[in-house]
Design a protein around this nucleic acid. Structure first.
Lengths: 340, 340
DNA sequence: GTGAAAGCGCTAACAC
DNA sequence: GTGTTAGCGCTTTCAC
């Protein structure tokens, strides 16, 4: 049905190999003769409505110009933004991005196999957990791999994101600058860096007896909203809640309002990720995060180096985040944006 | 490097075709003999760490189990949600989703060619504009195509979304139920259905002299924020602004607050799309929209029918939206959610 | 430069 | 059922 390189070669009166060369623009010296033939090939292709078959191309070249991205929470705004940024970087180099979503803690092998069977040229990893064995194997075999993580050490190239330092900074701001004591955490009771940073700040300040975790494993707006009642029921009321992420914080703020509590007057709230929406909530959300395009660039630089054949021990680079003091923590804005 | 079906066949002591059959589970009668061989093949595959090469598979089968989605504003929450819903539906049927973003009014042929060269089995279209010729050609040639649109007629299967009726309903609510007169529109001065619906409502109510458009072609939160000053500068102040979409409305609400105007007391605001965030803003955003999973299902049903070989004239189905009256329009909530 | 030929990894005839 | 064989559409040797 569709035109093949065969048919365009025929129409142009040349061999398939000549057509292939012409279409891919491989001539060294521009001898007028060859140029003319090449033009004839291009014209034939146009006439026939030829669309190169990159499936066949991928088979012979063992290269698909596709890179995979595997992560959780694909529709979380932070991730959606990152995906767009990655896609832009990929496109710049002539690559397509193929995304695969997984659930927290789920087995990734299904998604991974699907990507691998499509013979992606490299794989980008997001915040995945669970059994990372298959990925480690890939890395060990020299398969191009890069990602971001809050883990100190990794088996493949990773951009390190210090979420722990960020929540710690947020909590410190609440404690030191605002003089708050009953600062609690909203998010999963776990050893995620985000909660660890909070705990550290509490300990540093000798506020252990006020430390508390509104345990919640649904880091979404509904999840945050549901926290409000539990929060309001606490006696005495907490003065601030440091949230696991922006979505949770935004949901919590809405929930707090629904139960008649004012943010930040009654309770201060902070988020994490600095999604675009954090600059438009009422009150404006105090949060922290890294620059998404920069993260995308760093990951892609790692990956393309590997794809280019670079062979080295797993590398690591740290991307520093920033703290954005806005209204929801009730602070004066004297120190609007602080590097961390 | 990677194992091929050849190597697993060899290891299992069978022919490649037997291996292929075993791996793809094609046996009719389950004769114990065949079953045992099949198991041997599967074991060999496991031992070798065999990952089927779907590039080769796609080449011979002329089928890639991939469907494309082409649309604008991929990172707009409505679109991100739809993509997730489409992805789920696709995965259920064993298909992958390959997304391609384009700019409003831009030429889509680049993105289209990229998708087509990957030999997608079908294509889903979002709200694209510009030269639709290539798509019409595809449809005419029988290529599986489906999409959503606010156009009455289309050259391929489409789910019709009546945005015009929705903004009209929103404006009517403002005018009739709240008795407002100075109701203006925030969004592009164009013949988009969204603004048309507004205009219609204004005319129906004989309020032409109050009609006005805060022209703006950036339907984003920053875009909406920027509108606030122009809005505040109007004299007399408008009583309500019907926005092109939720993002714009949310940005506008933030901007209005920044210039000291209260929503809805000073100015009412409505959005469009009913993104999840609309249920968490302060004030809660009155808006309208369609159910995303339902839209995804409808589009997929159309597409899979075509992929399945169905041949028919372009079909059309209408998906009715709902209006969600919340706080930002200042209304009592007596009629919370109204079908439209 | 050119064209003939080989082959990427797989599935689908086809005889057996 | 099984194996043998012929391609899918392309790029890339390789002689010329």
């Amino acid at each position: 049905m569709s035109a093949t390189i065969h048919s365009v070669a025929e129409r142009a009166g040349v061999s398939v190999s000549a057509a292939s060369r012409a279409l891919n623009g491989r001539f060294k010296g521009a001898r007028g003769d060859a140029m003319k033939r090449a033009e004839a090939v291009r014209k034939a292709a146009r006439d026939l409505g030829y669309t190169p078959n990159s499936v066949a191309r991928g088979l012979v070249m063992k290269k698909t110009f596709t890179i995979g991205f595997i992560a959780t929470e694909l529709s979380n705004p932070v991730r959606a933004k990152l995906i767009e940024d990655l896609r832009v970087r990929a496109l710049e180099k002539g690559y397509q991005l193929l995304t695969a979503g997984v659930q927290y803690g789920d087995d990734i092998s299904g998604a991974l196999d699907s990507l691998l069977s499509r013979r992606i040229d490299g794989l980008l990893t997001g915040n995945i957990s669970g059994n990372l064995g298959p990925l480690r194997n890939l890395a060990a075999r020299g398969f191009p791999l890069a990602g971001f993580s809050h883990e100190k050490a990794n088996a493949w190239d990773t951009v390190f994101l210090d979420y722990s330092g960020l929540t710690r900074g947020l909590a410190q701001h609440l404690i030191k600058n605002r003089g708050l004591k009953r600062v609690i955490f909203g998010g999963p009771r776990s050893n995620y860096p985000r909660s660890l940073g909070y705990t550290k700040a509490i300990k540093d300040a000798g506020l252990e007896k006020y430390g508390f975790c509104l345990d919640c494993h649904d880091f979404s707006m509904p999840g945050g909203h549901a926290l409000a009642e539990r929060c309001a029921a606490m006696c005495p009321l907490p003065e601030a809640v440091v949230c696991h992420n922006d979505l949770l914080a935004i949901g919590l703020m809405a929930g707090l309002r629904a139960v008649g509590l004012k943010v930040p007057d009654d309770i201060a709230v902070t988020g994490m990720d600095n999604i675009e929406m954090a600059s438009y909530t009422n009150p404006l959300l105090t949060t922290a995060g890294v620059d998404s395009p920069e993260l995308a660039s760093l990951m892609m630089d790692f990956l393309f180096a590997r794809i280019g054949g670079e062979h080295a021990f797993p590398r690591r680079v740290e991307l520093t985040g920033k703290i954005f003091i806005r209204e929801s923590c009730g602070a004066s804005q004297e120190k609007n944006s602080q590097s961390f």
